[in-house]
């Protein structure tokens, strides 16, 4: 009999390979040249940064391989040296090798950028999700707390936390994470509040989806887009905040340079040698751009409606 309700006449019983949002997103991501390029740059930077720290001698692997100098040995005679075979990017005011300092700085700045964003994601995302999902008094409580956090000047709070934990590499991470989650919490709460009202969430509840699964399978994927964008913009912000802290004397202490410290230091001698600012500046800009491309690529990849 003709199947007038439009049943596909020919049924092909090959079970198609089941794909899902994440595998499809990966396929879509790979098609995005800018995003893939950005990811490649980030991976290269991470490799370079690891090489600068391992083995744990000044300059790490790259110094051992004679590709760079080492970031701490001073050579005052050679201050502000031009690029040469020995110092591919020249030297700083104390005659320290610039390239090795930038690579060492990468290890610090990238770690700060990424780890702080991960902290923010968990704290801000968690608080925002809880407030949005549970609503009612939970929402009220969490949002009043968020407002209070928001009311304090950021840098002051960071100072308080760093002072409380004692200045160290890790205390800066935690301080930054503890201060900068507020914006994300508000964003996630707003997202969750609007998604929670969608019929598809109701439909998921109706089919017996348990709360945790509802969050993981529906609320998280549908609120991820703007979160990713916020986080990628947060990475350079964290890098610069660390620099500001160094400037105030509570960041990463010289002789171990971070990019922020290098730029701050470079300002002093910007007329004597602008390269002191330009090279770390390029490093920060490249990082920021790469993360932005990756972030945009991720956001688009996670939206099945995007036509690449």
């Amino acid at each position: 009999m003709a199947t007038a309700i439009g049943i596909a006449q020919q049924v092909d019983w090959d079970v198609p390979e089941q794909t899902g949002l994440w595998s499809d997103a990966w396929v879509r991501f790979r098609r995005n040249r800018l995003a893939v390029g950005g990811l490649a740059v980030i991976i290269v930077m991470i490799v370079l940064a690891i090489g600068a720290r391992l083995p744990a001698t000044p300059g790490g692997l790259w110094h051992i391989l004679h590709i760079t100098g080492d970031p701490v040995s001073q050579d005052v005679v050679n201050s502000y040296a031009l690029p040469s075979l020995q110092h591919p990017l020249g030297t700083d005011i104390l005659g320290r090798d610039q390239l090795s300092r930038i690579l060492y700085g990468a290890s610090i700045s990238l770690t700060i950028g990424i780890v702080v964003q991960i902290l923010i994601l968990f704290i801000g995302g968690g608080i925002g999700m809880a407030a949005g999902y549970f609503g009612g008094w939970v929402d009220n409580l969490l949002m009043r707390f968020t407002d209070i956090m928001y009311a304090f000047p950021d840098l002051l709070l960071v100072l308080v936390f760093v002072a409380a934990f004692g200045p160290s590499f890790w205390s800066i991470f935690i301080a930054l994470g503890l201060v900068y989650w507020v914006g994300l919490a508000r964003l996630v709460r707003g997202q969750v509040l609007s998604i929670k009202e969608k019929e598809y969430v109701e439909a998921a509840i109706m089919t017996g989806t348990a709360p945790l699964k509802l969050i993981v399978k529906h609320l998280v994927p549908n609120s991820l887009g703007p979160v990713i964008v916020t986080l990628t913009f947060g990475i350079p912000a964290a890098i610069f905040t660390e620099a500001a802290l160094s400037f105030l004397g509570i960041g990463i202490r010289p002789p171990e340079p971070s990019w922020g410290v290098m730029i701050e230091d470079g300002y002093g001698g910007i007329f004597a040698d602008p390269r002191q600012v330009i090279f770390p500046g390029i490093a920060v800009a490249l990082t920021m751009l790469s993360f932005t491309f990756v972030g945009d690529g991720l956001r688009d990849a996670l939206d099945p409606r995007m036509k690449r």
């Binding site: 089941q18 899902g20 949002l21 109701e202 939206d303 099945p304």
Partner: peptide, 21 residues
């Protein structure tokens, strides 16, 4: 248009109730 999660494949949408139970 609003009752199907835009970020799930039709297979996942239909399998969700089966998984849940």
């Amino acid at each position: 248009f609003a009752s199907l999660d835009p970020r799930m494949t039709v297979g996942d949408i239909l399998q969700e109730p089966l998984d849940n139970f």
